[in-house]
Nucleic acid binder design. Structure first.
Lengths: 266, 266
DNA sequence: AGGAAAAGTTGACGCGCGTCAACCAGCGCG
DNA sequence: CGCGCTGGTTGACGCGCGTCAACTTTTCCT
């Protein structure tokens, strides 16, 4: 299905199609150091197997877990992608994260023993399911496991701080530019193309994530495309001018339209 | 100086003035379980003293730490209050937290060994400074310390998720109402009055925190006051109608103005 | 295959809130 | 005691973006 999207895209945009994110090797997984820590003891396999319960497959739209549900497992994404979101009593939803292969979900529920948010697969997604209980047991003997968990959680906190900055202080263009660049960098980290990739999120999801309306997302995409900074075909995106986009994302006072020719402040 | 503010306020608003937040007892400190965990070993005092380096006083506006600085210490607030904020390269600032007595600052820098944000005292503030390095050493032998750190960090994550919801999905009235109610609840937890307290933040800070303009904060305060739901005198606030404010903060579709008399939905 | 539902796009319109500006009120300082 | 400064308040104005709506394209389901 992702295949199909890519084929279609490559008809219109005649550039080498990129493979969607395949499964990460354990070595490239963000949880690797956690798993490695588990493996450090002599009885490597038995420990690992007690903790990494099993590998599961979720289809597009399926729930990995719900908020306030007992947080019995954490999930490491092997391939595919997932979104996390929180809800108000009023039923409003705020997407708080887009998670790519090698990333860990559900750890924030650690203390309350309940998930703090819900997680949903954005496409067919393969995950490692890790028992929180067993993880804790093993951690008794291996402090490095706790350190890894702390490391991962503080990464999550940094992510939220960046998102807060985006939601509180930026206009629609900056939000979308920053979103795309952030994705680009993450793809690069994972050894994928930083300029050609599939957003696994719909326009509506992106808008929700960035705190703007779905229609505004469309309009900004169109504007960027008219300027020649990127091309998109539904969820497939190609970034043509990373520098320009970076300028949009960062510069506080610059007006994008005027910068094209009139004011040669460059 | 907080004293003075209160005295002034009580002239205009003839209600029993409330004491500003005094120092919390160790027993009421959010870090108590951390300190307690340290104390569980036989050589209680020596351990505690190696780790809790010293108590410090910061004056209004003074920095506890800066982002990207080596994260050598975490700070537990004993009295007063502090704000944390992150910055863009462009120089924009987003306040990410308001911290009251009993709360812990600087833990998110754990993995990168650098603070992820900066922290600044909002008033004269007394803190316990805890050496990260020593904490780690002690944690080698006491897994419960790591568990406490995880607990505190996941609390931070939940806070950010709520803030994201606020910034992404709510209008100015809802943001301010939710902000005030959140504070109210936190004061109640700390055994202070949930209806009469000092915001240690300026209007500008509140606006920044909530992602709205300073002037909008003023206007919404004025509107709420006209409706009789609260009174404010500079940074001193009294909440008169928690229910009404809760309705504003939660209900997605309700219009505040109309609800006063016309629609008796109550 | 075929029809319905979902996702995406574009236009029109108006309101919420940001911005600019003037002004006021405490508070610290000399 | 008065002066200046910082923080707070209020008004006017306009633009960015949310909302509603019509329409197209793609995907999903039977």
């Amino acid at each position: 299905m992702t295949e199909a999207t890519l084929k279609r895209a490559s008809v219109v945009v005649p550039l080498a199609p990129v493979r969607a994110c395949g499964a990460v090797a354990c070595r490239d997984c963000g949880v690797y150091r956690l798993c490695a820590a588990l493996g450090l003891e002599g009885d490597e396999l038995s420990l690992l197997e007690r903790v990494v319960k099993r590998k599961l497959i979720f289809k597009r739209g399926e729930l990995l877990f719900r908020a306030r549900e007992p947080a019995d497992y954490v999930y490491a994404i092997r391939s595919g992608s997932a979104k996390t979101c929180v809800r108000t009593e009023g039923g409003r939803v705020q997407i708080t994260g887009l998670h790519l292969p090698g990333e860990l979900l559900g750890l924030a529920g650690f203390d309350s023993r309940e998930y703090t948010c819900e997680a949903r697969a954005l496409e067919t997604t393969s995950v490692c399911q890790v028992s929180m209980h067993q993880l804790e047991e093993v951690a008794e003997r291996l402090p490095s496991i706790h350190r890894e968990m702390l490391r991962i959680m503080s990464g999550q906190i940094r992510h939220y701080e960046q998102l807060l900055l985006l939601l509180g202080k930026h206009n629609a263009e900056r939000r979308l530019a920053a979103f795309l660049l952030g994705l680009s960098q993450r793809f690069a980290l994972h050894h994928y193309s930083p300029t050609q990739f599939n957003l696994s999120m719909s326009r509506g999801d992106i808008g929700n994530y960035l705190g703007i309306a779905e229609e505004t997302v469309c309009r900004v995409f169109t504007r960027f495309q008219e300027e020649g900074w990127l091309t998109t075909r539904r969820r497939y995106v190609e970034l043509h001018d990373l520098e320009r986009l970076t300028a949009i994302a960062h510069d506080p006072g610059r007006r994008a339209a005027a910068a094209t020719a009139l004011t040669s402040v460059a």
